[in-house]
């Protein structure tokens, strides 16, 4: 990157390092940190939406809908996490291809599962075999986001379901007494008040979500773990201008520090949000704030 980098063998230790850390592949590595943050930014709202929908359906008056919501919550809890990650990526992929197969090639007669193979017609392949590499990567990323959102959606649903039940009954009864319809009660009274009960659980989940992002590696995404393994491995002078021994340990140390910063930073932010949400609430925290505040 820098002009003095043309002949790295002659450089001093520190200069050498500055050249080494700014090679093209290292920028791919730095970009993968953005990928982590990107997947967090996309997954969190999607999982929140899934969770909200799950909680609403679990609360539903209609019995089958409520069973559906409760089953969604119950199945995802209690089974190991990464089993789900490994399972959903293949299952979703095959599910999409199967749907497209049904829609696009209705006159295809061969069975889809032939022994150890999963064969759909070429038009139904996702992404199409002719698609450029970038589309393949984007599709893999989208699948990963879907998987994360599905798994975390169930956790979120569980938290929100609990929070909705924690809102004092008297609040809802008062709303009814004022003549609000169930829908109005839900949106105007229940939802604004439930967040303070949901936030401790949600912030816990957020931390868990941050710590789950390295599992992207298992889903075939070129994420931080992938690059740390690639870049850290022993490089000989034959293949690179920057030969070095096995530095994977140091790369993973850097990842460790990155994640520590992420969790530490979000803890600070979340405690602020909690303080903001507690304001004026009928909880011990709200009461403590009221007493502490100057009159």
């Amino acid at each position: 990157m820098f002009s003095y980098c043309s002949d790295p063998d002659t450089l001093e230790r520190l200069w050498w390092l500055s050249c080494y850390l700014t090679t093209g592949v290292h920028f791919s590595f730095y970009l993968s940190f953005l990928k982590v943050i990107g997947i967090l930014a996309v997954t969190a709202p999607v999982a929140l939406a899934f969770g909200f929908a799950g909680a609403m359906s679990a609360r539903s008056q209609i019995l089958p809908v409520s069973w559906l919501g409760k089953a969604y919550i119950a199945i995802v809890r209690g089974v190991p996490d990464i089993a789900f990650f490994l399972f959903f990526v293949i299952a979703l992929d095959q599910g999409f291809e199967w749907l497209r197969h049904q829609a696009l090639c209705p006159d295809w007669t061969d069975p889809i599962r032939q022994g150890n193979d999963f064969l759909v017609c070429p038009q139904a392949k996702l992404p199409l075999g002719t698609a450029p590499q970038a589309v393949h990567q984007a599709y893999a990323f989208a699948l990963a986001v879907m998987t994360f959102a599905l798994v975390f959606g169930a956790f979120v649903a569980n938290v929100i379901f609990g929070a909705m039940r924690a809102v004092p009954k008297a609040q809802l009864e008062t709303a009814e007494a004022y003549g609000m319809s169930p829908r109005q009660t839900f949106w105007r009274i229940l939802v604004p008040q439930m967040w303070v009960y949901a936030l401790p659980g949600l912030s816990n989940l957020w931390q868990v979500l941050i710590k789950a992002t390295p599992l992207l590696f298992l889903l075939g995404i070129e994420d931080v773990v992938y690059w740390a393994r690639e870049l850290g491995g022993t490089k000989t002078a034959r293949f690179t201008a920057y030969p070095h021994g096995d530095w994977r340990m140091w790369y993973f140390l850097a990842l460790l520090v990155f994640y520590l910063f992420m969790t530490w930073g979000s803890e600070k932010v979340l405690s602020r949000i909690m303080a903001r949400l507690t304001r004026g609430q009928a909880t011990t925290g709200g009461e403590a704030q009221r007493k502490g505040a100057p009159a």
Binding site: K211, A212, T213, F217, D246, R248, M249, L255, L256, Y259
Partner: peptide, 18 residues
């Protein structure tokens, strides 16, 4: 508690390897 177990495994493995 602040870092992913997955990364801890990787780090420990390469540390032991060194």
């Amino acid at each position: 508690r602040g870092s992913p177990l997955f990364i801890q495994f990787f780090f420990a493995y390469f540390l032991f390897l060194n």
